[in-house]
Simulated scan of single mutants.
Amino acid sequence: MADWDGVAERGVYQGAYQGERDRLSDAAHRGDWAAVLAAVSKSAALVNARRVGGRSGWAPLHQAAWHDAPAEVVEQLLAAGAWRTLRSADGERPVDVAARLGRDALLPLLEPVPVHPVPAKALRAMEHFLHALVRVRTEHYAVRTALVLPQACVLTELPDAALWFGVPGMYGGFGIHLEEAGRAPRLRVTSHCRMVGYSGRTHHITPDGCVLVESGW
């Protein structure tokens, strides 16, 4: 299961880990692909990392599109697990950045290839209900950390169609699974707090709403 890194507030990550993320973001911003790929090789989770507290929400693949990086760099980022569907704060995917700037040679590489196709309208609707659920559950546990909430579109390109969203201050988080795709999409969302017994909840989210199906585990 892939991790969704939703921390949007500086000061939550401390020491070496925060520095590692800053160095990656700096290297991607200036187009230092040797440094980016070395960092990703050392810590694969960084391949989709955005600058903590940054405004753009760009990951290394967005920066590669902006800089018109060599195709082999883009291929190495994709091989390391970079998400083609990841949207920036403005809603742009890497392919959208490339198209806007005329990076035509990169378009075939950056065009999303969904493993689990879901209509865009259905994804947007499910994401709306997912975000509402996350807000309700994190408010219940008095989470104060600013968060970047998960994007349902990412699930469509993951082989197991699953994300884990660990939430600082909740002592737990959310497991998000795309169980059905195509014309009848559904998300199964589990959530819990390790510090509270029987706090587990399971919800099913469709484009029409969110339903609690199990609690107390």
Rank of each mutant, 00 (worst) to 15 (best):
V134A: 10
F174C: 07
D96S: 11
G182D: 12
A49F: 08
V167T: 00
W4M: 03
Q151I: 14
L158W: 09
G54L: 07
A82I: 11
P112Y: 10
D5N: 14
A45D: 12
S25Y: 01
D104T: 07
P207W: 06
A162Q: 15
C153P: 00
T190P: 02
T145R: 05
H140W: 15
Q151E: 15
A132S: 13
S215P: 10
Y17M: 12
L77P: 01
G6A: 02
T156W: 03
L149I: 10
R51W: 08
H203R: 09
Y13N: 02
G175V: 13
A142Q: 15
R144F: 01
K121N: 10
Y171W: 08
G169K: 00
M126W: 05
L133Q: 14
G173H: 03
C193K: 00
R201A: 14
L77K: 00
V167I: 08
P94F: 12
P159F: 11
S199M: 13
C193N: 05
G15R: 11
I205H: 07
Q18T: 03
H177Y: 14
R137C: 03
E111A: 08
A125H: 01
L212T: 15
L158R: 07
R87I: 02
A161H: 04
F174E: 04
V47I: 07
M170S: 03
E75Q: 15
A184K: 15
W83M: 06
R135W: 13
V154C: 12
V167Q: 00
T156N: 11
Y198L: 12
W33Y: 06
N48F: 05
T85N: 04
S215K: 15
Q63H: 15
Q151S: 13
F174H: 04
R30A: 12
H116I: 00
T145D: 03
S25E: 07
E75I: 07
V97W: 06
R30M: 10
W58S: 07
D90V: 09
W83H: 09
V12I: 12
I205R: 02
P60F: 10
D96T: 09
L86C: 00
R188Y: 06
A27N: 01
A45F: 11
V154E: 09
G6M: 00
A161K: 04
V7K: 02
L61W: 08
G216E: 14
R87P: 01
A82P: 09
H192K: 09
M126V: 04
L77E: 03
K121T: 14
Y17V: 13
V74Y: 05
E75A: 15
L212V: 11
V113G: 06
E75W: 11
E20P: 10
Y17P: 01
R124P: 00
V52D: 08
W66H: 13
P117M: 07
H67R: 06
V113D: 13
P112T: 07
A16V: 09
C210S: 12
R201G: 11
P60Y: 08
L46T: 05
H131W: 12
A161N: 05
P117T: 04
L77N: 03
G169N: 01
P117V: 02
A45C: 10
D160A: 12
A35D: 07
I205N: 07
F165E: 00
R23C: 01
D160T: 12
A45N: 14
A16L: 14
Y198H: 14
R87F: 01
R137D: 10
L147S: 08
I176E: 01
Q151H: 12
E139N: 15
A181K: 02
A35K: 02
R21K: 15
L78P: 13
R103S: 05
A99R: 14
P117R: 06
D68W: 06
